[in-house]
Design a protein around this nucleic acid. Structure first.
Lengths: 339, 339
DNA sequence: TTGTATGCGTTATCAC
DNA sequence: GTGATAACGCATACAA
């Protein structure tokens, strides 16, 4: 490994026969300078391959040009299928303004997330996916003067920005479609351990009422449902009901895909025997033609990036919150009842 | 936004009635200290919610505890379906040692990647996905004393680490399976714009020879093939051949999935009329039951993380290179010929 | 227009 | 065991 000490601005100044102050000013385009001086500095910088130390620069300017991003996990197919789409949105939204992402390492059972992670001055703001920091932790970060953008959480402290999606709208649209297809026995499969999941389940209840359908506890997952890979017993229970559901509304694509796989193993025809609907519009969902509610995950990230920048810029937006619309897209896992 | 100035170590030292040096030592567990002193410092740190400034800390210690990761894009379903798996592997491998990931923002048509990105002192090492930095750029980074780990590139400068996968093995295994199923007319669909793609295509040629099959240029994509969404004409061409292929070996899952979708639209039965094989083992591939070669993407990332740490630690491994094995997994898109 | 001096917050090196 | 002080590399305010 080469140990070539990188050139500092003093090296540069010496080489260009100017003072460090002048060198700094020229490089940052501040003040006026004799053309010859300017050229000498530029030339020397090229020769020395001078790259200013970002750390010290940040220390000086008070800005790091980086946003911390915490995503609870980068798991594949777990509770949140669109994590990476969100990440891309954030990254892109920041890239347009020359900012980078500091991805905080946090993996289950390995580290607890602490507010202090985000207070060491490395980032100008943080974007938080749900599940990592509790309300107290969020308060601590925001209270320390680090702007916070919360994702998929509407119940956040006063000064915290948030970007959510319209779960209610998505569920309503999906249910309207199912009802239009003649479905009356619509079941809901999903857990309750995030705000999104809870909203979707609540919307399911409200959706039934909208169409004059009765809520049947048997047709709705109880609190304890785990991750998609443990959905087997729940599905078995539903299928064994006297009046089994003709449509399965799932809390997200992960559950829907797990359900599809189980149905395939049981040789239950989809969508002919039973319709299945997901939520999120994950890549896998699109690939298999799952009818699902597409959420604008990349936009969620982009919006978060914009809020982060705005807050850093001092914009004391009291209203830096938004709920983005979703789009139900019928594909190949929904059909008229009894076909 | 709160502007609460964060407590510095001098504040802490004053509060604890010790010198900054002692405070620093206590916090970092260096040297021996009277128990009372230690407790005073700890207590004061708690009260003041002291968090050391990571920038200055890095300035002092010369280490940032962060690794820069450059992934050409975070695109969905583009050339590299496993980007996120790799990212997870890197993140995880670093997290175990308390290190974070600085994700460099680089999106197509928005920014060119320059070696200087990685030379501003923000990271201890960098991991580079292919396509971003050319050989000269990599040399520049490594030459400046920043350890580099290249992914999916074996042709790298002397001091650069690299993590690759055994493309040849994967293609051979897949072809052996196809041949065992009775296939003789096996076509290859894929581009050549990455080393992996080229290796896979070359292995296809070698694989044919292995089984005593003749290489037919008509059965192999020409150089110019674009992204998966433009694979239509190529597939049409293959299907219209006098002796059309009975099996399609695709350069990666993205192409394979695109092919599957097109075949579905054309109502060509898979695997009964034609078998399809992908490469990479992406989430989508697993979901649809694509027969594919699974590459250990997360391990690739984890290995890269380990190399990065080793190089940072001064380990002058001349041999910090590896080629990880892959596993062909037959699923639901391959069947005996003519069924 | 250019140069000089100060300070950022921390760690490391040395006296005490 | 503890404390003073230098040094890290840069931007900035101010003097020349």
């Amino acid at each position: 490994v080469g140990v070539a000490r990188r050139a500092t601005i003093s090296d540069l100044a010496r080489a260009a026969a100017v003072s460090v102050g002048t060198a700094s000013n020229v490089l940052n385009g501040k003040g006026r300078h004799a053309e010859t001086t300017r050229l000498r500095v530029i030339e020397a910088a090229r020769n020395l391959q001078f790259v200013p130390n970002a750390l010290i620069r940040s220390l000086q300017t008070g800005t790091t040009n980086a946003v911390g991003v915490f995503t609870w996990r980068l798991e594949r197919g777990d509770w949140h299928d669109v994590t990476f789409d969100v990440l891309r949105g954030i990254s892109r939204g920041l890239a347009e303004h020359g900012m980078d992402v500091l991805l905080y390492a946090a993996h289950p059972h390995e580290h607890n997330v602490e507010a202090t992670y985000f207070l060491d001055g490395r980032v100008d703001a943080v974007v938080l996916a749900p599940g990592g920091l509790d309300r107290e932790g969020i308060e601590a970060v925001a209270g320390a003067g680090v702007p916070v953008v919360a994702l998929y959480q509407s119940d956040v402290p006063e000064r915290v920005a948030s970007v959510c999606i319209d779960n209610r709208m998505g569920v309503f649209d999906a249910m309207a479609h199912l009802v239009a297809l003649g479905h009356r026995r619509i079941a809901f499969i999903g857990p309750t351990y995030t705000e999104d999941f809870r909203e979707r389940r609540d919307a399911y209840g409200a959706g039934l009422a909208r169409h004059g359908l009765r809520f049947d506890p048997d047709m709705c997952s109880a609190e304890g449902l785990g991750t998609p890979d443990t959905v087997g017993p729940e599905l078995a229970r539903l299928l064994s009901l006297g009046r089994a559901p003709t449509a399965l509304l799932c809390a997200n694509d992960g559950y829907a895909l797990a359900v599809l796989e189980l149905l395939r193993q049981r040789e239950v025809a989809v969508p002919n025997s039973v319709s299945v609907v997901g939520f999120d519009g994950s890549a896998q969902a699109l690939t298999v033609g799952l009818s699902t509610v597409r959420q604008p995950a990349e936009e969620v990230g982009a919006q978060a990036a914009q809020y982060a920048r705005a807050l850093v810029g001092g914009a004391t937006l009291t209203e830096c919150r938004t709920t983005l619309p979703v789009t139900y897209v019928a594909a190949r896992t929904t059909a008229p009842v009894g076909t």
